[in-house]
Design a protein around this nucleic acid. Structure first.
Length: 493
RNA sequence: CGGGAAGUAGCGCAGGCCGGUAGCGCAUCUGGUUUGGGACCAGGGGGUCGCAGGUUCGAAUCCUGUCUUCCCGACCA
């Protein structure tokens, strides 16, 4: 194990890679652009998934599963959606291999096994799902249809980065059908709210809720809502999206229902998703030069107990016994705890290792502590250490976990506020992007052309128009044309 | 897909120009001493040098192709 992490200042990208790889979240694989999610990273994803899944169910959704493959003819049915994803689709053209007659021990694609119709590996599942919904929806009584699926999808990206952009990723995608436009919009907003609450309350990640401009909209949507977060290098990251799809998919797949008035109407649709990209957001939002920093509520491991042994076997037994008791009591409180009594590494090594992994609370337990009826408690977020009496230690730890959770959120929020600037001139805008990156709140004349031009000139995009945005008259940062509100710009992942 | 860099033991690297028995540090294994911030001593194991061709008596080294990764662009959650 190499002990050296690249610092954020030195090379932010390398720091991120180091954390993901050395922190044991993921590994590269033999497949281009695809990563292996390791147990620690997958444990984190499981915790995130479990919370989200509960929130989805609490809002009336059910899980289902649809096929990985989408026949090309279905995929192309909704034109804009198909066009938007066409460039990055993996396509299955054959269903069989055979041994190579010219090269023993090797396989070739059997030309005789060509599919009549190619299968697209789903980059998103609207097509296959709406083709199915057609059969499930006849009457207004079948609505609303509220379905979520946990799945993998494939997008053949040109440039990949662990968790942030991989060719295959895990996500959930909700797909709902409604009788009215208003109800569908309410669903879109409700799910955005679920995502925002999840990000803020569980990931300790403050997010801006907003609406995308037409340029940045999901292919096939009428409106795309999003949550946007700010990373420590001042770049924005889209952490989740919720789309109001109008009747686009209903029309493309002919999904109609008989209303109460006995008229045939197209249903109104939404879709919404978050992915393993959230893990990338988590890493970049909270971690430091010592390693990962996990928010307690979703940390795979919340507390680690490190024994400090010495030669005295009797003292050792006492430490083991006390640790066993602490674990029992912490687990009774629902706290995820591990006792690391591996004798092949010394305490200092373990301290560094669990800091790298971002375990929120570390308890060191030695003979000296037991004599004083105390333990040493260290918190990962501030790296503070303090002796704590064994009387009431369980409550102390439980409370400390909550404190760390809110501290991480407050810290990230303060960072975002420090790095959100209101700017009114083009020169300052350009200068800020290079010198003090972050969110920039600025006026925009509302045209796609201007947005495109700004992107060309600065690589900054409009991250969103914040919900409940204050209306104020102003002049567009680029063109000087009149504007009615500020929008949020940033360079983004 | 364009530009740059790289692939040699689990990890990090040297060797390559000038072809001739594959090396170093960490990790690992065994034994011992240790344990309050990445321990120490002694001994051992592990690599067809990314892959495929070619040149050669002989290739990690020279040539061609190919795959993968990283960084910078274009694309994107």
């Amino acid at each position: 194990m190499s002990n050296i992490l690249t610092s954020r200042k030195q090379d932010y990208s390398q720091w991120y890679n180091d954390l993901v790889l050395k922190g044991g979240l993921a590994d590269y694989s033999a497949v281009r652009g695809c990563m292996v999610i390791k147990p620690y990273g997958y444990g984190l994803w499981e915790n995130m998934r479990d919370v989200l899944d509960r929130m989805f169910k609490e809002t009336g959704h059910q899980n289902a599963y649809f096929p990985l493959f989408v026949p090309k003819s279905l995929f192309e049915a909704e034109e804009k959606n198909a066009e938007g994803f066409a460039k990055e689709c993996a396509v299955v053209t054959h269903y069989r291999l055979k041994t190579d007659p010219d090269n023993k021990g090797k396989l070739i694609v059997d030309p005789a096994a060509k599919l009549d119709e190619e299968l697209v590996v789903r980059p998103t599942s609207e097509a296959i799902i709406w083709n199915t919904y057609k059969n499930w929806i006849q009457s207004y009584r079948d609505l609303p249809l509220l379905i979520n699926q946990w799945a993998n999808v494939v997008r053949w990206e040109m440039r990949t980065r662990l968790f942030l952009r991989t060719a295959e990723f895990l996500w959930q995608e909700g797909h709902t059908a409604h009788a009215t436009k208003e109800e569908a919009i309410a669903e879109t907003e409700q799910m955005l709210d679920v995502y925002a609450r999840f990000a803020e309350e569980y990931m300790a990640l403050p997010v801006i809720r907003g609406v995308k401009t037409p340029n940045e909209r999901f292919a096939g949507a009428e409106d795309t809502y999003c949550i946007e977060a700010l990373m420590q290098d001042g770049k924005a990251l889209q952490a989740g999206t919720s789309h109001f799809l109008g009747q686009n998919f209903a029309k493309a797949f002919d999904v109609k229902f008989a209303s109460k008035d006995n008229t045939m109407e197209y249903v109104w649709a939404t879709s919404w998703g978050v992915s393993t990209r959230l893990i990338g957001a988590l890493v970049m939002a909270h971690s430091d030069d010592e390693g990962l920093v996990m928010p307690p509520r979703i940390a795979p491991l919340q507390v680690v107990i490190v024994p400090i042994f010495n030669k005295d076997a009797e003292a050792r037994q006492k430490i083991d016994d006390k640790a066993a008791q602490l674990i029992k009591e912490l687990r009774a409180k629902g706290i995820r705890v591990k006792y690391d009594n591996d004798d092949s590494t010394r305490p200092g090594w373990k301290f560094a290792e669990y800091e790298l992994k971002g375990v929120p609370v570390r308890i060191a337990l030695g003979a000296r502590d037991l004599e004083n009826n105390q333990v040493e408690v260290a918190r990962r977020d501030t790296k503070e250490k303090a002796p704590v009496s064994l009387d009431g230690i369980i409550d102390h730890v439980a409370q400390l976990l909550e404190e760390i959770q809110s501290n991480l959120f407050n810290r990230a929020l303060a960072f975002r506020e420090e790095n959100t600037r209101s700017i009114d001139t083009w020169d300052e805008f350009v200068k800020a992007l290079d010198e003090t990156p972050g969110f920039i709140s600025a006026h925009w004349d509302g045209t796609p052309e201007t947005e495109e031009k700004i992107k060309e000139l600065t690589k900054a995009t409009i991250r969103c128009i914040p919900l409940n945005n204050k209306q104020e008259a102003g002049k567009c940062i680029l063109t000087g044309n009149p504007s009615t509100q500020r929008v949020l710009f940033a360079r983004a992942y």
